[in-house]
């Protein structure tokens, strides 16, 4: 892992268009400002880890199903009520 030291208001570039700025330092909490293109998702790592854990828990054990299964592409329908998009 690359480790860099930064002071208040200094920043780090990741690639050509993601910038991290140290906004404030208060005891054991560092506030970071993140400037990234809108198509880049930015999340706290815990959020991502929680989703990973939930997804793994969703896969049931090895027991085989006794009934027939079919591909069901037509069952996915677009929403009647369009979700809002920010």
């Amino acid at each position: 892992m690359l480790v860099l030291s930064r002071k208040l208001n200094q920043s780090i570039m990741i690639g050509d268009n993601v910038q991290l700025v140290v906004v404030s330092i208060d005891r054991d909490t560092v506030k970071l400002g993140i400037q990234a293109p809108r198509e880049v998702p930015v999340h706290r790592a815990e959020v991502y880890e929680e989703i990973q854990k939930a997804n793994r828990a969703a896969v049931p054990g090895a027991a085989a199903e006794s009934t027939n299964v079919k591909a069901a592409p037509a069952l996915l329908k677009s929403r009647r009520k369009a979700p809002k998009i920010n």
């Binding site: 199903e65 009934t67 027939n68 299964v69 079919k70 591909a71 069901a72 592409p73």
Partner: peptide, 12 residues
């Protein structure tokens, strides 16, 4: 792919 069991109508 998305599948459905004959016995489950609310789960894909």
């Amino acid at each position: 792919i998305v599948l459905q069991l004959e016995t489950q109508d609310q789960i894909l």
